[in-house]
Amino acid sequence: MEETELAARLRSHDPAVGLRAVGALHRLAEQVEAAAVARARQDGWSWEQIGDALGVSRQSVHSKHGK
């Protein structure tokens, strides 16, 4: 892939890009989790199995996604 202007800025240690990337990674993790949990439920996974896969308790995954 051709190096983008942003990749160049990141390598030049532009903090704005690095900091936004950290926030974007957090958002991405949350959004991928929401999609994967919904799909797991459709496929019949229990809240306990989903919690184990995410490394959190059954209660915490259920209270976050169980509506």
């Binding site: 983008t4 942003l6 990749a7 800025r9 990141l10 890009v17 690095g18 936004r20 990337a21 926030g23 974007a24 990674l25 958002r27 991405l28 949350e30 959004q31 991928v32 989790e33 929401a34 999609a35 994967a36 919904a38 799909r39 209270s63 976050k64 996604h65 509506k67």
Partner: peptide
């Protein structure tokens, strides 16, 4: 677009990745 570009800058391509809105808590 700002997020996609920032993720690309750390080597992550999010095209085609399944994502959903985060449930309100």
């Amino acid at each position: 677009a700002l997020d996609v570009a920032a993720l690309a800058a750390v080597g992550i391509d999010v095209r085609g990745v399944e994502r959903a809105p985060v449930p309100l808590s």
